[in-house]
């Protein structure tokens, strides 16, 4: 395994995130099968063993590169100032908000709010009227397809309940 030639030093901190996650998960996984029958263990130990091995080699490689000053423990390839400027952090926040709020506000309203907020963040507040209209059209279309037509189990909020009442009366 040859290390790639790099012009500027590699941000090894960021590159280590996945291997560290992999190691942590594999060890957790092993802990759940320690006392299980062989059928539960055989392929997991095989796959997990190789995974631990390659992660180990990668970490050793990183240590060597750090010692040779070919890389640093930085995270800038993963997170940097640009993430705030491009609205990525805000977008992530809106996405998390979507997941949290959908249970309380219902599918349609949450989708509307999510689309509105995230488009506004990414568009840096321009063309708000158009964004509002777009968000409204899409969320109502989503309601028509998923709730009204296909009757999926998405959380119902006041919008869905009101529409249901309206449709059953009309």
């Amino acid at each position: 395994m040859k290390p790639q030639k790099v012009e500027k030093s590699r941000q090894l901190g960021a590159e280590l995130v996945i291997p560290v996650m992999a190691i942590a998960f594999t060890l957790y996984y092993f802990s759940t099968i320690w006392n299980s029958p062989w059928t539960a263990q055989v392929s997991a130990f095989l796959v997990g063993g190789i995974l631990l091995l390659v992660c180990g080699i990668f970490i050793l490689n990183c240590v060597r590169m750090l010692a040779n000053r070919e890389g640093s423990l930085g995270f800038s390839t993963l997170v940097n100032r640009d993430d705030i400027r491009t609205g990525r952090i805000g977008f992530l926040g809106a996405t998390l908000g979507f997941c949290v709020l959908i249970d309380h506000l219902g599918f349609t309203l949450t989708t509307f709010l999510f689309l509105l907020v995230s488009m506004a963040i990414l568009g840096k507040g321009r063309r708000l009227a158009m964004i509002t209209g777009l968000a409204a059209v899409i969320s109502v279309a989503g309601w028509a397809l998923f709730i009204w037509a296909f009757d999926t189990r998405f959380p119902r909020g006041w919008f869905e309940i009101t529409m249901e009442a309206l449709l059953s009366n009309g």
Partner: peptide, 21 residues
């Protein structure tokens, strides 16, 4: 291999022992 490990989540197909859930 990380993908394969994630794919191993769930009960084993023979004795249905839950793993990594």
């Amino acid at each position: 291999f990380f993908g394969l490990m994630i794919g191993s989540i769930g009960t084993d197909v023979v004795y249905a022992t839950p793993r990594g859930t």
